[in-house]
Design a protein around this nucleic acid. Structure first.
Lengths: 160, 160
DNA sequence: TCGAGATAGATGCAAATGCATGTATCCTGA
DNA sequence: TCAGGATACATGCATTTGCATCTATCTCGA
């Protein structure tokens, strides 16, 4: 068996790359389909939750709409309206960015933090329930590393 | 450094599991955002393409709607109408399943095969362009393995 | 300083989506 | 055999999404 045959440290072929993406994508679909049906997301859609979560992971002041948009699979206009809905529910505030009159700063309200924590706890439990037993700790760490590097590479080398 | 600290073959914590999912999901978002903007998907949306692709990967006769639905992140009704659109475009045919009067068999037309091949070629090139250089062959194979096992586990242990 | 182009976000509108439900068919146990 | 429930898919309808475009603001070079 050659290095190539066992998938050694060679430059991957187009086919190998496409297969890896396909596999990653299908795994995401399978997991996401199940996560979406979690009762935790009856109160708030998973995309709305994702925005709240992203806001918890960033400096206190909040995020610009375009920064938020990097984390979510939505068109700019769709995110704009999603945030508008969150504002109407009292979960986030929007204010004009102090240093750039065009920008909008989105920040969590107290209710937003509380809602994220509440849904987040159930969500994390559900993730563990679904994925538990699929991979051991080393494999899971490996997966985290590989996907993180994949993301970093794409963000770094292929701006939108 | 203990085995746990370096992520050895232990039973993963809830936190480690959630981190891995988060990382996988963000990588998927980053890659998908870029794939979606490929001009190859101006003619046909990526979800529509995905259905055509899935149909190429299965026995000649086609797939039932509910089987298709396992591969796609869409509600049953949305897929039903997506397939209806594909039929109107002449890319698939729908016929009643011979062994089950409730079912619908979806199959590619000749134009459907041709369209999938054409878009697929461009799509695979784009995948290689985006991911090329991110991971070497061994890492890519590892990623394929891990995500495939993740999917298999979820499909096996957590039916919808 | 000014004007052309770039950028951030909002909005009108058509298309796509999901939920709830409807219809037809299939299955199962009494 | 047949009634009750389950399953497969379709459909009405309100919501969400994306595209194209608009406005407001910023940036930069002449």
């Amino acid at each position: 068996m050659t290095a190539t045959e066992r998938g050694g440290a060679h430059v991957p072929s187009v086919r190998e790359t496409a297969e890896a993406w396909e596999s990653l994508f299908r795994a995401q679909v399978a997991v996401m389909r199940r996560l979406q049906s979690d009762p935790a997301f009856r109160e708030l859609g998973i995309k709305e939750y994702d925005v709240l979560f992203t806001l918890t992971q960033c400096p206190e002041g909040g995020l610009r709409l375009n920064e938020l948009n990097d984390h979510v699979l939505l068109a700019q206009s769709s995110l704009s309206r999603l945030v508008e809905r969150l504002e109407r529910k009292g979960l986030v505030t929007r204010r004009s960015a102090p240093d750039d009159g065009r920008g909008t700063l989105i920040a969590l309200t107290e209710a937003g933090w509380e809602t994220q924590r509440r849904i987040g706890r159930a969500h994390v439990r559900e993730i563990a329930r679904l994925l538990g037993g699929a991979l051991d700790g080393g494999e899971l760490a490996e997966l985290t590393q590989l996907t993180a590097r994949l993301r970093d590479h794409v963000v770094e080398h292929h701006p939108l």
